[in-house]
Amino acid sequence: MSEFKRISPEQAQALREQGAVVVDIRDPQAFGGGHIQGAQHLDNHSVADFIRQADLDAPTVVVCYHGNSSQSAAAYLVGQGFSDVYSLDGGFELWHSTYPDAIAQGQPE
């Protein structure tokens, strides 16, 4: 079984440009206040649907607040059959300071 990889914002940006899926596991209020453009919000209620509909081989970047919780979530996705999973080191906080123009706002759908 593969393992997830920890990556920097710069590496995550390169993956985004190549079409990687970005999932944000922060709470809905934090997501609504700002998230990486194109990110999908995932929580305990939506993760099962996400897994059912996902391309398990697509690069998937997991984002949390500071890069800690995303490691557990990334490991979980690997355990569910995802083959190319990344945890964003520094989380959304580091992303926001690195790429302030790549932030979107709005509540999860």
Rank of each mutant, 00 (worst) to 15 (best):
M1K: 09
R6K: 14
P9A: 06
E10Y: 06
E10S: 01
Q11K: 13
Q13W: 08
A14S: 11
L15Y: 00
E17D: 13
E17T: 09
Q18S: 15
Q18M: 12
A20C: 11
V21H: 12
V21I: 14
V22I: 14
V23Y: 03
I25V: 14
A30F: 08
A30Q: 12
H35P: 04
H35G: 00
H35Y: 11
D43R: 09
D43L: 08
N44H: 15
H45S: 12
A48Q: 14
F50P: 05
R52S: 13
Q53D: 11
A54Q: 09
D55M: 09
L56K: 14
D57S: 15
A58Q: 13
P59C: 09
T60R: 02
V61G: 03
V63A: 07
V63E: 09
V63S: 08
C64Q: 06
Y65W: 10
H66E: 15
H66T: 14
H66Q: 15
S70G: 02
A73I: 08
A74E: 00
A75D: 13
Y76R: 10
V78H: 04
V78T: 02
Q80E: 15
G81R: 07
S83E: 08
V85P: 00
S87L: 04
L88N: 01
G90A: 02
L94H: 14
W95R: 02
T98N: 07
Y99L: 08
D101S: 15
A102L: 09
P108T: 04
P108N: 04
E109V: 06
